[in-house]
Amino acid sequence: MSVFPSIDRQHAAIRAVWPTFHLVAHTDRTATWSGTLKPFMLAYKVRISHRIPLAIERIDPLRQQPEVRVVSPPLKRRPGDAEGSLPHVYVDRVGDPVLCLFDYETDEWTPFRMLAETTIPWALDWLGCYEGWRATGEWSGGGRHVGPAVAEAIR
């Protein structure tokens, strides 16, 4: 038995608070949900992948955080922008952006937390900040940009 919330418990919490999200794949320790979030102007289809760590694994939020990706519409870059061409994302090995939703050094998220209370609301907030950034060039969400070494460490 895991000390972390089970996939079933995570799924029940997501279903209760975010009814547009559906479980699309799962095992005992992994799950992927798909759903729609609409911060202001656009509705975004997002995919959230989560893996429950083994109790004996070193808990490293940078490596064990849920991965949130925008499926559609595609995120647009702004080359040469002061905030970066697409701020507050990690880029996976394929080149797809994974949303950076929290500061990994502040313990905002751990595998003990519920995705319905953290990851999904943070993704909605990120998308609102993204829409503002696209309109104004200013990132209103705060946070700090991670350097290339940290961004690479997550993958």
Rank of each mutant, 00 (worst) to 15 (best):
H22G: 07
L23F: 06
V24H: 04
A25T: 12
H26Q: 14
H26N: 13
T27L: 01
D28F: 10
D28T: 15
D28P: 02
R29W: 08
R29Q: 14
T30Y: 06
T30D: 12
A31G: 10
A31F: 04
A31H: 07
T32S: 10
W33P: 01
W33V: 00
W33L: 03
W33E: 01
T36W: 10
T36Y: 13
T36P: 00
L37M: 07
L37N: 05
L37H: 09
L37W: 08
K38T: 15
P39I: 13
F40D: 14
F40L: 04
M41I: 11
M41D: 13
M41L: 13
L42I: 13
L42Q: 09
A43I: 01
Y44G: 01
Y44C: 07
Y44F: 15
K45Q: 13
K45S: 09
K45G: 02
V46Y: 02
V46C: 14
V46W: 03
V46A: 00
R47N: 13
R47I: 04
R47V: 04
R47G: 06
I48G: 02
I48M: 08
S49D: 12
S49P: 00
S49N: 09
H50S: 04
H50D: 06
H50E: 06
H50C: 11
R51N: 01
R51H: 05
R51W: 07
R51A: 07
I52L: 14
I52V: 14
I52N: 02
P53I: 05
L54F: 10
L54I: 00
A55T: 04
E57S: 11
E57Y: 07
R58V: 07
R58L: 13
I59Y: 00
D60H: 13
D60K: 06
P61G: 03
P61L: 02
P61V: 03
P61T: 06
L62C: 04
L62E: 09
R63K: 15
Q64P: 01
Q64I: 00
Q65M: 12
Q65L: 08
Q65G: 14
P66Y: 10
P66R: 06
P66G: 09
E67N: 09
E67A: 15
V68Y: 10
V68Q: 00
V68P: 02
V68L: 06
R69H: 09
V70C: 05
V71G: 03
V71K: 12
V71H: 12
P73E: 08
P73Q: 08
